[in-house]
Amino acid sequence: MSANKNILVAAEDVDDTNIVRELLCKEFDQVFISTDPDKAVQDFEQHSPAVLVLAFPTLARAQSYYLGLYRLSARAHAHPHRTLILCNKAELQEVYSLCKKDHFSSYVLFWPLGYDATRLGMEVHHALRQVALNEAETPTTSEFAAQARRIAGLEALLEMSLTQGSEHIAAGQQVVEQSGDDIRVALDGFASRFSTQGQQQLREAEGVDISVLELLQSEFARLQTEQIDVHLRTASSALQPVSDWAKQFRQNMAPEMESVRGLQQLTETRKPLVLVVDDDAFQHKLVARLLKDAGVELMFALSSQEAMAAIHRRRPELIFMDISLPDLSGIETTRRIKAIESFASIPVVMITGHSKKDVVVESLKAGACDFVVKPFDKAVLLKKFSTLLHME
Score class of each variant (00 low, 15 high):
D38Y: 15
L286G: 00
R203Q: 15
S386P: 02
I19W: 06
E45V: 01
S48E: 05
C25E: 13
Q217A: 11
L113F: 13
Q251K: 14
V208P: 01
G330N: 11
Q164D: 06
I340R: 07
R129E: 14
T163C: 10
L290V: 09
C25Q: 14
V242I: 08
N4S: 15
H47T: 04
V95E: 09
E137F: 13
F282R: 12
T138I: 15
Q42G: 07
Y115W: 09
H284E: 01
V51I: 02
P49W: 00
R250S: 15
E167Q: 06
I323G: 11
I169S: 07
V380W: 03
L325M: 10
L92C: 07
S363T: 10
E258Q: 14
A254F: 11
V108M: 01
Y107E: 02
V9S: 00
A3C: 12
H125A: 07
S2K: 06
V380N: 12
R150C: 06
A10Q: 03
T138Q: 13
H81V: 01
L133S: 06
A171P: 12
S64W: 07
S64H: 09
G330P: 08
V175G: 09
E256N: 12
H284L: 03
G165N: 14
S105V: 08
E204L: 10
L202R: 13
T267A: 12
R61V: 15
S236N: 15
F194T: 03
